[in-house]
Amino acid sequence: MQRLPLSFIRPGMRTYEEVLDSQGRVLCGKGIEITEEMLKRFQDLGVSYITVEGTPVKLPWEKSLDEELQALEERFKGVEDETLLQIKEIIKELLFEKFKIKE
């Protein structure tokens, strides 16, 4: 999952979250493939960001899944507290979900 400014969005990308216009109205549901026409409509209605499935755009600051997992291990090094470890597991789940591409 990536949330990107409209200028990064290309036809063929799939929505991960609902698309909202500048008034907060829902324009498009989740899991929909974005078409050329939809993109134009989003521009006209002042959409600023869209959350899409997978990681279709290479962002210079973004880590890969492996790098993310490694950094997570480092941050939690030496942690034994059960609560903290459960939060670590949630973040791991989030990372796998984030890099997943749905069929």
């Binding site: 999952m1 949330r3 990107l4 949630i90 789940e93 989030l94």
Partner: peptide
């Protein structure tokens, strides 16, 4: 907590 973290992720972008 899971929902909070999943809601936060897009905001971080």
């Amino acid at each position: 907590i899971k929902e909070i973290l999943f809601n936060l992720e897009p905001r971080l972008y």
